[in-house]
Amino acid sequence: MAALGTSPSTLTDAADVIALLVLLSEFAMLRSSLSRSQVRLYGFQSLCVSVLAGFVAATQHIGELYGLMGLSFVLKVIVVPMVILRLVREVRVDVTASHRLGVATMVLLAIVLSVFGVFVVGRLPVHSHSLPILALGLAAAVILVAFLLVIVRNDVVSQAIGFFSLENGVSVASLVLAAGLPLIVEVAFLFDLLVAVVVFGLLMRVHQGRSRTLSTRALDRLRG
């Protein structure tokens, strides 16, 4: 129990708040009903992740992380949202994302998942130097909520955003767990993400070109 007076350093608190923003933007994505605002929220979330990377770089004096921060900023805050927004603009139909559940139900489910994630992390013997353990718990929550997002939404934009934000959650987790990861590996991860984004974009276009919609409701032919 955090007794009076033993308040942790303000820096850690700031990092916690940013990590919280990552989770809150995930929740916002979950409930947001416009594809466009979902993409913007993703951009905001990526911004928070980049800031966290910069925070770790500064406090841990890991110069390589600055480069990573810059890369992920350019890629995830600017390029990806721009590409998807353009796609959404081109389609012009059903830019409202769809829900399979009521918003309140969804948020409650997501809360349950978050609690689960945080409690699991709470039982782990992890001691990180780079970020408070809370960030790891929140990252776990982000990942779980991202799964929920992909499951309860049935349009390709939401599903793609769900995957990208899952990756953001993993990024936060990796900042906690593996801040010292060698640069070459980090760059490989990022490069991979880039390729994945291209593929997602391509498939979204294929899907849109074939079915004139971004909804996945038409994707029910293959079953059994």
């Binding site: 955090a2 916690d16 919280l20 409930r31 918003v103 948020v107 978050s114 709470g122 809370l134 718990g137």
Partner: peptide
Amino acid sequence: KITEFMAVAFLLAVLAVLVLFLGAR
């Protein structure tokens, strides 16, 4: 839609407790 509003308030309050749960470690 008011339930959504309530859900947000609940989310924030639950997160506060979660933050304390992990912050205490």
